[in-house]
Each structure stands twice: as structure tokens, then as C-alpha cells.
């Protein structure tokens, strides 16, 4: 089981740029979703005239299904400057992959709980680290895409774009760099030094 918890209000406010399209994932049945807070956030965005549309669904990590849904909301999405995704890290990465040139942001942090996980396609991994980095990595998770889980950029170990540990694995940080370049968002690499927190409250309780 896992918990998706809305990031602090200030964090979300700092992510929002222009008009926003929101995607809520009520997830697999094992996910605990912050429904009340999500509705509140959407109301606020609407009151500010920033909301172009909302999709509320489950299993956004199913790329085929998601593609159809996104196509049916094309107009509202085109009108938005960014997509705000309220889901676990897998969902955010699925959506980010679909929009190559639109900013996709994670509004939630994902925490693990003991018990079953939702059944998800595993191409996009979420480690449920509780401090989602997807907003500063172009929607590609550095914890799972980098074999050292580095959070401040690539090491010097990639050869021909492949990881030093596994020559079949693309260097996660080279993917992140390319993605940010494509989005015109290389400036986010100038963010403060990131230091992982292995004692997120929820983890300690679990």
C-alpha cells in the first residue's frame, strides 16, 4: 500500500506557472489519496482563473488508457501552460513521458506503507521515497533511473550514454538533461544542493 500526500501549499504555489490542467489519480485500490486537499486546491486554482480542466480517474499509470483520456481533453490541455499531477511517482512519470514539450509537475510525495502495492507497469519506477524529485528532474525519477540514485546530477561513469553498472541501462541523468533541454528548463539544474532525507516522518512510523 502507498500514500500520496499533497506537497506543502507553498511548494505547489512555486510550481504553478500560468494556466494549469490537473490530473487526479485515485489510483489502484491500495492508494490513499488526499481527496479533500485535492478538491480544495482545484477550487483555489479555479477561483484564480488558472484552471483549464481536470481529469479524475484511476490507474493513470496505464499508458494506453491514459493516452485516450488525454486525447479527449486535448483542448483544455492545449490551453494550459503546465500539467499538475496528483498521483504517485509512477503516474507522474507516465504523464511526463506523454508530454514531451509541456511542463509536468508532481503535486504529491509518495510514501510506502506495508502491504500490497498497486499493480503498475514497471517501466516507470517510483521508490516511494517521500520527497518527490520529479519537479526538478523533468519528470524522470533520479532515484530509480540512476543506479546510484544521485540527486545532484550525473557521475562521470556513463560511457556512450550507458550506465557504468549496466551497459543496457541508459544513464538516468543524461536522460534528465536531455529532457530538461527539450523543455527549455535547464535552469532547474541550478537549484540548491539536494540532500536526501532517510527519516521522512511516515517512513519512521511505518
Amino acid at each position: 500500500m502507498l500514500i500520496t500526500q499533497l506537497k506543502p501549499k507553498e511548494t505547489i504555489a512555486s510550481l504553478v506557472e500560468g494556466k494549469v490542467f490537473v490530473i487526479n489519480c485515485h489510483g489502484c485500490k491500495e492508494v490513499s489519496f488526499p481527496e479533500k486537499e485535492a478538491v480544495e486546491l482545484q477550487k483555489e486554482l479555479e477561483a484564480q482563473g488558472k484552471l483549464t480542466g481536470v481529469i479524475t480517474t484511476d490507474y493513470i499509470c496505464n499508458p494506453e488508457n491514459m493516452k485516450l483520456r488525454l486525447e479527449s481533453h486535448k483542448q483544455e490541455i492545449d490551453a494550459a501552460d503546465m500539467i499538475l499531477v496528483l498521483s504517485c511517482g509512477v503516474g507522474v512519470q507516465t504523464v511526463a513521458e506523454y508530454f514531451e514539450d509541456k511542463k509536468v509537475c508532481a503535486a504529491c510525495d509518495t510514501y510506502p506503507l506495508p502491504g500490497f502495492q498497486g499493480v503498475t507497469p514497471l517501466e516507470y519506477d517510483c521508490d516511494q521515497c517521500g520527497e518527490c524529485y520529479l519537479n526538478i528532474t523533468g519528470g524522470i525519477c533520479p532515484i530509480t533511473a540512476c543506479s546510484k540514485s544521485l540527486v545532484n546530477g550525473q557521475c562521470g561513469g556513463a560511457k556512450n550514454g550507458k550506465c557504468e553498472v549496466d551497459s543496457n541501462m541508459e544513464c538516468g541523468w543524461e536522460r534528465i538533461y536531455r529532457r530538461l533541454a527539450q523543455l527549455g528548463r535547464l535552469d532547474v539544474l541550478k537549484c540548491p544542493t539536494q540532500i536526501r532525507n532517510y527519516a521522512t516522518e511516515e517512513k519512521t512510523e511505518a
Binding site: N152, G153, Q154, G161, W173, Y177, A181, L189, T193
Partner: peptide
């Protein structure tokens, strides 16, 4: 610190170098 000037992803290396300088 180190940097890899002949890397095939030299721009990403420069970005990391900048982070090291900032740190």
C-alpha cells in the same frame, strides 16, 4: 572535485561542474 571534459555528454558535465562550484 573532478570533471570529465571529453565526455560525450559534456554539457551535462558542465551543468554538474556549476553545481559543484555553487556548493
Amino acid at each position: 572535485a573532478v570533471v570529465s571534459p571529453c565526455s560525450d555528454s559534456v554539457d551535462a558535465q558542465l551543468a554538474k561542474m556549476e553545481r559543484k562550484v555553487a556548493a
